[in-house]
């Protein structure tokens, strides 16, 4: 039997047998080379309680080349693209070793959620948010976990959020008062959210960015 197939089959079996680690690997479209991995958000992080799914593609030269992984579930994290789910992690690139398995790689992803590396970001905007205000970042990450990963959310976070409708302001990690302020000037709400997010209008930064600059950006 093909060494790659044998190895992947064994790895899938390993994950099935190991209930303790809570890592699951399932087939997508019946091929053992295109898989869906999933795990729970680590405890004590904004991702706690969420269930995260990862798209896994096994390349032809596996295990000598790294697996290709990206998040299916949207995640608010400095090293994960909030748009595409692409992951910035050394072992998925040059630090890959053939002894690493699907399970160990998924565990590494899990621990990536515990310890973001904002100095080597995949998503620069999220990283900026993380660096400016940790508490605001965590709140947003928790909100994303709740919306996308089925997390419990913070009690009394945003009243309307629980009902299933997404609160765009919270999604972008912004203050409702700020968005309202610029919306009152006659700008489109979604545009205000977009600009403020790009400018990292959060925490201590709010004092540094004067309103004129925001308006200038809005007018562009």
């Amino acid at each position: 039997m093909d060494a790659r197939l044998r190895r992947v089959n064994k790895e899938i079996l390993d994950c099935k047998n190991d209930r303790a680690s809570n890592i699951q690997v399932d087939l997508i479209d019946n091929s053992p080379f295109h898989l869906k991995g999933s795990f729970n958000g680590p405890e004590g992080t904004p991702y706690e309680g969420g269930h995260f799914e990862v798209d896994i593609v096994i390349p032809d030269s596996y295990p000598f080349q790294p697996v290709k992984m990206k998040f299916i579930t949207k995640v608010y994290h400095p090293n994960i693209s909030s748009a595409s789910g692409a992951i910035c992690l050394d072992i998925l690139k040059d630090a890959w070793s053939p002894v690493l398995t699907l399970k160990s790689t998924l565990i590494s992803l899990q621990s990536l959620l515990c310890s973001p590396e904002p100095n080597d970001p995949q998503d620069a905007e999220v990283a900026k948010h993380y660096m400016t205000s940790r508490s605001s970042f965590e709140e947003t990450a928790r909100y994303w976990t709740m919306i996308y990963a089925g997390g419990p959310g913070k009690e009394g976070l945003k009243s309307g959020a629980k009902s299933g409708s997404k609160d765009e302001v919270a999604m972008a990690g912004l203050e409702k008062a700020h968005v309202d302020q610029f919306e009152a000037l006659g700008f489109d709400r979604s545009k205000v959210i977009d600009v403020l997010r790009r400018m990292n209008y959060r925490g201590a930064n709010v004092a540094k960015i004067n309103d004129d600059r925001v308006v200038e950006e809005l007018l562009k």
Binding site: A3, S61, F64, Q65, S97, P98, V99, L100
Partner: peptide, 28 residues
């Protein structure tokens, strides 16, 4: 590691990555 894996590993490093600096297959 078995020699077949070594062979595949080294071949893939040289052929697809163009790498002459081939480290042991073990992690770290």
């Amino acid at each position: 590691f078995c020699s077949a894996c070594w062979n595949a590993y080294i071949t893939s490093k040289i052929r697809t990555e163009g790498e002459h600096w081939i480290t042991c297959m073990a992690e770290d």
